[in-house]
């Protein structure tokens, strides 16, 4: 197995990916793409967790990353369910048009 790159490399990649995800969440109106941006941000956090776990030679970071993946799966399922419900109600999923809290 090849030796892996230094830890700061992974942290910087994680920071860049997180910023891209945050930017995408701000500039897109399509809730599906906004969800994808949330996934990118969660993955960036996972990358940091695993990098620190490797650096300190503890396993806890990997366990937390596993939990984050499970929570991301749950979040996507519920979020997509809500999007489908909204789409069924008003034939549009533009987040700027869904600005009242009643059906």
């Amino acid at each position: 197995m090849i030796e892996s790159a230094p830890t700061p490399y992974y942290l910087v990649l994680s920071a860049v990916l997180f910023s891209i995800g945050a930017l995408g969440f701000c500039i897109r109106k399509n809730p599906l793409v906004m969800f994808m941006c949330v996934e990118i941000m969660l993955n960036a956090a996972n990358l940091s967790f695993v990098a620190f776990a490797r650096h300190l030679n503890v396993i806890d970071g990997q366990v937390i990353a596993l939990f984050i993946m499970a929570i991301a799966a749950a979040e996507v399922v519920v979020g997509l369910g809500i999007i489908v419900a909204i789409f069924r109600l008003r034939d549009s999923i533009d987040v700027d048009e869904v600005n009242v809290l009643r059906g």
Partner: peptide, 29 residues
């Protein structure tokens, strides 16, 4: 990101990443 996990010696996480994300979540999307 899965390749990054692999390069850090987290093989199981890399496998879960591909199975759960590319396999399940993306199909849902």
């Amino acid at each position: 990101v899965a390749l990054m996990f692999l390069s850090m010696g987290a093989e199981f996480l890399a496998a879960v990443q591909i199975l759960v994300y590319a396999g399940a979540i993306m199909i849902l999307f």
